[in-house]
Computed example of a mutant assay.
Amino acid sequence: MSNDQPRPLAKPFWRRGLAGLLDFITVFFGGGYAIGAATGQTTKDGFNLTGAPALLLFALIVAYFYLGWKVLGGTLWQRGARWRRRPLCRTPNVRRGTAASAPARP
């Protein structure tokens, strides 16, 4: 059996690219300042991370994008601008017309 529902169209590249850029800027400056404030590496112009705190910021950025794309179904900017709409919980992908999705007979 074929699925009668059409596939949703992919969002244009510029929207996905803009969301990725805004996500990176948000995590870099927000996370960088938070880590800098926690480790005492803030300056009058912002923050200057060196050594382990810089590696921690890099790990935070990687974790943010991994969790946003693979686990949560979208990053903050993708969800906020409705550029990606997936539920937060994962449900099994059951095709219509299979024995697993057929209603039980009385």
Rank of each mutant, 00 (worst) to 15 (best):
T39A: 03
L72F: 13
A38E: 00
R82T: 07
Y64H: 08
R105F: 07
V27T: 00
F13S: 09
G74L: 07
P106C: 07
A81V: 11
L72I: 05
L60I: 04
P106V: 06
T91Q: 14
G80P: 00
F13E: 05
R90M: 08
Q5G: 01
R105D: 12
L21M: 15
L56K: 03
G68L: 05
L49D: 06
T50V: 12
F47M: 02
Y64P: 09
V94E: 11
A99T: 11
D23G: 01
S2N: 09
A37H: 04
D4W: 03
L67C: 12
G36N: 02
P87W: 11
K11R: 15
Y33Q: 10
T26P: 01
K70F: 01
R86F: 09
L21W: 13
Y64W: 14
T91R: 15
P6V: 03
F47E: 02
A34Y: 00
D23H: 03
V71K: 10
A10I: 08
I61D: 00
D45Y: 07
F58C: 06
A81Q: 09
D23F: 06
F28G: 00
L56C: 07
T98A: 09
A102D: 06
D45Q: 08
A19T: 07
N93Q: 15
L57S: 04
D45V: 05
N3M: 05
W14A: 12
C89E: 08
F28L: 15
L72K: 08
P8K: 13
G74N: 08
T39N: 04
L72C: 03
P8F: 08
V27L: 12
G51T: 02
A59G: 12
K11P: 12
P106T: 13
G73C: 02
G40R: 05
F47G: 04
G51V: 01
L76G: 00
G30I: 11
V94A: 13
G32S: 07
R95Q: 14
S101M: 10
L60Y: 05
I35P: 00
G20M: 12
